[in-house]
């Protein structure tokens, strides 16, 4: 009998991801699943899924899941947590969901200091609908609705959500991460764990902005996409802790 050295986390259901090769949604899903399992939270968690590429997340994460309408994930999470204060509630949103159609909901959830964990996937593009411009699309980046690249004169500038939400008084923990390397993956996992622990300790609103890749819509190979995040995307969206009530910054 061979020794088992790796096993799929119990935090994920036995279902193949639908994500494209090189997309980091699957990495973040796995990290969430692993943290939930390691913290023993699989039977006391309510997850809220977005509309966007992660719309099928309820098929993957092995907890109770609610599928929200586009952008309303923070509203659903607000109610889920207020009505079930003893449960862990996490919400998962892409950049269209959180920073465009659902901007009001995330800002107000943050302003109220809702004690839930908001995981924000920023890949600068609308993946599922076919590569349209997102509020987070970089200056010069091409998309199907800005075919010559994002022009600040026409399309304005990218939304920096972690920075924006950090000026509010109530958020407890806001960090921007990029799981583009083994170290980045480990850091992201540690941040998810820290956010969940803060929630269990009743600290209040936590948001992790996670820079992710979209090789399909960026027109890159998975490796090129990872490098692109490290070399280009991080210049607009610098990594770091923007708010942490539990640490001196």
């Amino acid at each position: 009998m061979m020794k088992q050295v790796f096993k799929r986390t119990e935090g994920l259901k036995d279902k193949e991801f639908h994500y494209c090769g090189g997309c980091l949604h699957s990495v973040v899903h796995r990290l969430i699943g692993e943290v939930l399992e390691e913290m023993g939270l699989l039977d006391c968690t309510i997850g809220i899924c977005p509309v966007g590429c992660a719309v099928f997340m309820y098929d993957y994460i092995n907890t109770d899941m609610i599928e929200a309408s586009h952008g309303r994930t923070p509203a659903v999470a607000t109610a889920a947590k207020r009505c079930n204060p003893d449960k862990l509630v996490f919400a998962y949103q892409g950049d269209g969901d959180l920073a465009s159609i659902g901007m009001a909901e995330i800002v107000h959830a943050a302003a109220r200091g809702e004690n839930a964990t908001f995981i924000f996937i920023n890949n600068g593009i609308y993946g599922m609908t076919g590569g349209q411009m997102a509020p987070t699309t970089l200056v010069g980046q091409k998309a199907t609705t800005c075919q010559f690249g994002r022009d600040p004169k026409v399309h304005g500038m990218p939304m920096k959500m972690a920075e924006m939400l950090s000026v509010l008084d109530k958020p407890y923990y806001i960090e921007r991460l990029a799981p583009t390397s083994p170290a980045g993956v480990n850091k992201t996992k540690a941040a998810i764990k820290k956010a969940f622990q803060y929630q269990l300790d009743g600290k209040g609103f936590q948001l992790l902005e996670i820079l992710c890749t979209c090789p399909t819509q960026w027109g890159m190979t998975p490796v090129q996409a990872l490098n692109h995040v490290d070399e280009v995307v991080k210049q607009t969206y610098p990594l770091g802790v923007f708010k942490d009530g539990g640490e001196k910054l």
């Binding site: 609610i66 309408s69 309303r72 509203a75 659903v76 999470a77 607000t78 109610a79 889920a80």
Partner: peptide, 17 residues
């Protein structure tokens, strides 16, 4: 809620649980 839209989605969240 911050809007009617948020309010009905909060109802959705509470009812779903």
């Amino acid at each position: 809620a911050e809007s009617e839209v948020a309010a009905i989605n909060m109802v959705y969240g509470a009812a779903a649980t």
